[in-house]
């Protein structure tokens, strides 16, 4: 029996939670069920948005077209009728490579991190580019991937004072997280490199370069 918990956020959002924390197995369950929900209810006018987070499927709905308790019943029925067979991840064949220019003008914080943690710039680049990072979800800004799985050896705290502007494509480290900025934005992450890949392009369908549930690997240019 799949364990889950349904909550409401405000008057127009239903949240189906499948567990706590950042966990690939939970994120796999979330991906399994968002596909099922989309197949079953996305054609209905009351559905405004369906998206996922690390451990939940989120449904924004129009309360004038669907009452909250009825929607809850519909979702519970769908979960009951659709049991996940394997929590294992089978998306490893979808590893997207992101070419990165590390250091120098592209990664102004790389030398500072190197001096501080006692690893050479080359070692940091090797560690950073040797792992497959899970795209748990997209969020924060269009096309921004929330990645999991960075090696703790290269974790480094956020800047004490955020930069006013970070160029689009910047690859950063904040604590145990690593990520890529799709757009120029203010930010407190330590920037170690930059990619030319456009992570979000409205002229493409779908517009996102990365897909949640897949993996990426940084490749040093």
């Amino acid at each position: 029996m799949q364990t889950y918990n349904i909550n409401f956020h405000g008057d127009s959002t239903l949240v189906v939670n499948f567990g706590k924390g950042i966990d690939e197995n939970i994120n796999n369950i979330v991906h399994f069920y968002i596909n099922i929900f989309e197949k079953n209810i996305i054609q209905n006018k009351y559905v405004l948005d369906i998206y996922l987070t690390y451990n939940s499927v989120v449904i924004d709905y129009d309360f004038n077209l669907m009452e909250s308790f009825k929607l809850k019943n519909i979702i519970e029925k769908i979960i009951l009728e659709n049991r996940i067979e394997s929590k294992k991840n089978n998306n490893f064949e979808k590893i997207i490579e992101i070419p990165v220019n590390y250091g120098e003008e592209f990664g102004p914080d790389l030398s500072k991190i190197s001096k501080s943690i006692g690893l050479s710039e080359k070692e940091i680049i090797t560690i950073h580019s040797s792992k497959n990072y899970r795209v748990h979800m997209l969020g924060f800004m269009p096309g921004f991937p929330y990645l999991g799985g960075m090696d703790e050896k290269i974790s480094f705290p956020r800047l004490s004072e955020p930069r006013i502007s970070i160029p689009a494509g910047s690859v950063g480290i904040a604590g145990n997280q690593t990520g890529v900025y799709p757009f120029s934005s203010p930010g407190g992450w330590n920037i170690i490199g930059r990619t030319n890949i456009k992570l979000f392009d409205i002229n493409k369908s779908p517009p996102n370069f990365l897909e949640s549930g897949t993996y990426l690997r940084f490749v040093a240019n």
Binding site: L48, D49, I50, Y51, L52, V58, D60, L138, G139, F140, M141, P142, G143, F144, P182, F200, P206, P207, N208, S212
Partner: peptide, 11 residues
């Protein structure tokens, strides 16, 4: 703009 939150695009 609806149906785009899965790409990180708000309403």
């Amino acid at each position: 703009r609806f149906g785009k939150k899965k790409f990180g695009v708000s309403n």
